[in-house]
Deep mutational scan, measured.
Amino acid sequence: MSIQHFRVALIPFFAAFCLPVFAHPETLVKVKDAEDQLGARVGYIELDLNSGKILESFRPEERFPMMSTFKVLLCGAVLSRVDAGQEQLGRRIHYSQNDLVEYSPVTEKHLTDGMTVRELCSAAITMSDNTAANLLLTTIGGPKELTAFLHNMGDHVTRLDRWEPELNEAIPNDERDTTMPAAMATTLRKLLTGELLTLASRQQLIDWMEADKVAGPLLRSALPAGWFIADKSGASERGSRGIIAALGPDGKPSRIVVIYTTGSQATMDERNRQIAEIGASLIKHW
């Protein structure tokens, strides 16, 4: 067993022997300050990975656009099909120029040879490739089937209704393509630590998230040396920005953090900075 597999395998073990964890309200002060700075709603939740206990939250049951954070859930659904023998990570999918949508930095380079399901999930999570996400959605039956998968997991909140890039419209009070911080955190925890996926698939999912290449300005920018993070960011219209992450010190994840914001007129750089500052406060008061 590799060191990485050993780390994931021990998560349920540590759950039975973990020391108590305590929240620090200073982080919530920073979350509220971020709302003021951005002139927008901010949703935040911090969940103990082992016990599932909510350590701190702000607007945990308000809806926010999922943006590209849905791609982790999508690849979780794909992996569940792999575990059930209904899909193969090595299966090659061919597509055409007509399938390409905006922001497809990986898939646009493989029009001649296609990409495997594994490569598409990697592109969707690590590079947030939109065409990769659409091709993967097709393999499971579309957005409604992803919503059904989540319902079967016990998540009756999170929903995907449209494809890339339309799902990023982020219209106020529109429940399409939205989640709540509490629902997303719970669902992510189930995918990473529960029995829904095999150990190999849980490890694959967290490996893809750990290799995320487009979330550098967010929580990763505040991460001390030696800390672990596996994450997925998202951005969409109407000043929306978000990130879902499993992180912790000593090279292993111990908490789930979900941050969403929407309705801001601030620049992308400012939205990134506010999320990074929330992360810095979280780490300082860990």
Results as ranks from 00 to 15, higher is better:
I3V: 07
I3A: 12
V8E: 10
V8A: 11
L10V: 11
I11D: 10
I11S: 10
F14L: 09
F14C: 09
F17I: 12
L19V: 15
L19E: 12
L19C: 15
L19I: 15
P25Q: 09
L28Q: 07
D33N: 10
E35A: 04
D36G: 14
Q37G: 08
L38A: 04
R41A: 06
Y44L: 06
L55I: 07
S57H: 08
R63L: 05
P65Y: 01
M66V: 09
T69R: 00
L79W: 00
D83C: 01
A84L: 15
E87F: 06
Q88C: 10
Q88G: 11
Q88W: 13
Q97V: 15
N98S: 14
D99G: 04
E102M: 14
Y103R: 02
Y103E: 04
P105Q: 02
V106G: 03
V106D: 06
T112G: 15
M115R: 02
V117L: 11
E119A: 07
A132V: 00
A132G: 02
L135E: 03
L137W: 01
L137C: 02
I140V: 12
G141A: 03
G142V: 13
P143S: 02
E145P: 05
F149N: 02
F149L: 07
L150M: 08
R162H: 08
W163R: 07
W163V: 07
E166W: 08
E169C: 11
E169Y: 08
E169R: 08
N173W: 14
T179S: 05
P181V: 03
A183V: 09
M184L: 04
T193R: 09
L196C: 15
L197I: 06
L197S: 01
A200Q: 15
R202A: 12
R202W: 13
Q203T: 15
I206V: 10
D207L: 13
D212K: 03
D212C: 04
A215N: 02
A215P: 03
G216I: 03
L218D: 02
S221Q: 11
L223H: 00
A225F: 09
A225V: 13
D231S: 03
K232E: 08
E237R: 15
R238C: 13
R241Y: 02
A246F: 09
G248R: 08
G251T: 05
G251Y: 07
K252T: 12
P253D: 02
P253A: 15
P253Q: 04
A266R: 11
T267M: 07
M268W: 10
R271W: 04
R273I: 07
I283T: 03
H285T: 08
